[in-house]
Design a protein around this nucleic acid. Sequence first.
DNA 1: GGTTGGAGTTGAACATGTTCAACAACGGTC
DNA 2: GACCGTTGTTGAACATGTTCAACTCCAACC
Lengths: 230, 230
Amino acid sequence: MTDAAVPPPPSKGERTKERIVAAALELFRAHGYEATTMRMVAEAAGVSLGNAYYYFENKDLLLAAFYREVHEAHLAAARPRLARKRALADRLSAVMTAKLEVIEPYHRFSALMFRSAADPESPLNPFHPAGADIAREGEQLFAEALTGSSTRVPSDLAAELPGLLWTYSMGIVLYWIHDRSPGRRKTHALVDRTVEMIASAIKLASNPLLRPFRKKVVELVRDLRFPTEV
Amino acid sequence: MTDAAVPPPPSKGERTKERIVAAALELFRAHGYEATTMRMVAEAAGVSLGNAYYYFENKDLLLAAFYREVHEAHLAAARPRLARKRALADRLSAVMTAKLEVIEPYHRFSALMFRSAADPESPLNPFHPAGADIAREGEQLFAEALTGSSTRVPSDLAAELPGLLWTYSMGIVLYWIHDRSPGRRKTHALVDRTVEMIASAIKLASNPLLRPFRKKVVELVRDLRFPTEV
DNA sequence: GGTTGGAGTTGAACATGTTCAACAACGGTC
DNA sequence: GACCGTTGTTGAACATGTTCAACTCCAACC
């Protein structure tokens, strides 16, 4: 019974959509986002301009498709590395390094990802329905990095850490966008050093003596984590 | 001798530019950024479309002019409040509250400020020459908040704090952009609580016992503060 | 086989940011 | 006052994201 595993054959529309995405990703890679016009995408996909808009309401949604692809690549790159590490700092480092490596080819136009991520209207924004999946999966990855590590974390903190770490990773990406150093040396240095600090801070915060302080921070995060809620 | 204080009379061009800015700000306020077209701005300013582009290379630069106006308003609102506070937490709170009040009328399109701020190419980005002034003045304001307070801060830390606090304020603004709660309650709550935590952390970090740890953090910040440097 | 309704597709049209060659106004110089 | 270079100004043209009414294709149904 392999029925459940066999996806239905792609419809004509699905194949067309796939062609459009592929064309767009290739053009983005080659020319960047702004320089890639919808007409170029349509032509490269062997499709009319209007047809591209039949599948993607606007250009941003093509970017969202691209973003998802990058995200999948990150997951695929990070998980095998996690399997080889125990120490928390190493595991966090594995996740972040995988991220930096995956996004490196797109440095020249990755600012776009970020601008969209900061825009409440954009499908890339983690609070937007269309972008929520990626954020959730990103947090999930950090959750795996935590649970698989040799470090024990109190449960109240453990509940909030994945979200915090995901936010941290967004901050790193923002730094990386502006990083002009060769080989993105500064971003890697920042990751190396902050990852150590975070691991230390987590161990410290797990100390029973610090429970009251920890509670206060966890409460703050829990209360205010979702600005979009009322 | 009041010569130095008397600015030269505005040239024709300066007056035209002023009219364009004024028209743009009013239209932004009324309709938001995207919905305001350059043609609308030109017409409202009583000027041809091409002429608007003579003064502002692109629409983003009009947004930059708007951003500067908001920034000036923030400085003007924050400084008198600082004069009435001594405690560090109160002073930080004064600066942040002034900021939130000043930007509140523009909540609907303020995401634009942020997207531009995150974009290395944009004039709003603090690492971009055109946006650097605003960032510097923002840090300066935090420097005033610090030096005027009753709290003593070790000099190594004092050198880095304004920049860190400015970064913190950007984070608050990012949160505020997504805040849908009535009266922006959640953002205010976040400010209230984080400002306390920051003041406590600064006092804690000033403790001589923590000098090694503080040195480590200060060094990290100093080394990596400017991603755009090589 | 004909009909029908939805999915897929097209090209033209539109709105808007941006550019540009040409023109006008102005201020200084002789 | 005539000349001239700089500053200011214009409207048309262009590129590109987006929309839309019309068309084709195709599978399901009678």
